[in-house]
Amino acid sequence: MTSHVYVLNGPNLNMLGVREPEVYGTETLDDLRVRTEKAAAKNGLSIDFRQSNIEGEIVSWVQEARGKAKGIIINAGGYTHTSVAILDALQAVSLPVIEVHLSNIFRRDQFRQHSYISLAATGVICGLGAKGYELAIEAMANIVNKSTSKA
């Protein structure tokens, strides 16, 4: 039986491949979805891959995941640095969370070096481009398999 994981993407990630390719790479969000789906299948997970530019919609998806998923992988985009609401939602659902960033946020603008999401995250992957999503899937599979083997 495969475990289900939400993969949530925040604002402007729908512009991947167009927006600052020197920072974010040339792969599109759809390319990331395909890559993530393949990694999930390889690791015995199914995923629900979503993107929104709307903070409240992301909060609603996090809350929805509580009853439907074993974990959340999230690239909150710009909301990483501003959203207490997403942090509160992630903390409320009591699920493992892997935070992902395509770029290394610690080599960017000062304001990007703080993450509210990290306060709820089991782990953080940043700076490895699209490969970070695959690594997040592998990490989540390990986390989910450990928790199901204890049950």
Rank of each mutant, 00 (worst) to 15 (best):
A76W: 07
S94R: 15
A130Y: 10
S118D: 11
D48K: 07
L16G: 01
H81P: 09
T36I: 06
R19T: 09
L128P: 03
K68I: 04
A120K: 05
Q63S: 13
V124D: 01
R107W: 02
G67A: 08
A120H: 00
S118H: 07
L95Q: 05
A65V: 10
R33S: 12
H81R: 10
E99G: 04
F111V: 12
G129M: 12
N145Y: 04
A40H: 05
S103D: 11
D31P: 03
A40R: 01
V59A: 05
S3Q: 12
L13E: 02
I143Y: 01
G71K: 02
I54A: 12
A136R: 00
A65W: 07
N104R: 07
K42G: 11
C126S: 10
A85E: 05
I86W: 02
N12R: 02
E20Q: 11
G127K: 03
W61M: 12
Y6L: 14
E99A: 00
I105Y: 03
T28Q: 06
L8V: 01
N145T: 07
D31F: 01
S118N: 08
M1T: 13
I54N: 09
L8D: 05
I86E: 04
N142H: 12
E20K: 10
D88L: 08
G71H: 04
H4Q: 11
E99K: 09
D31A: 09
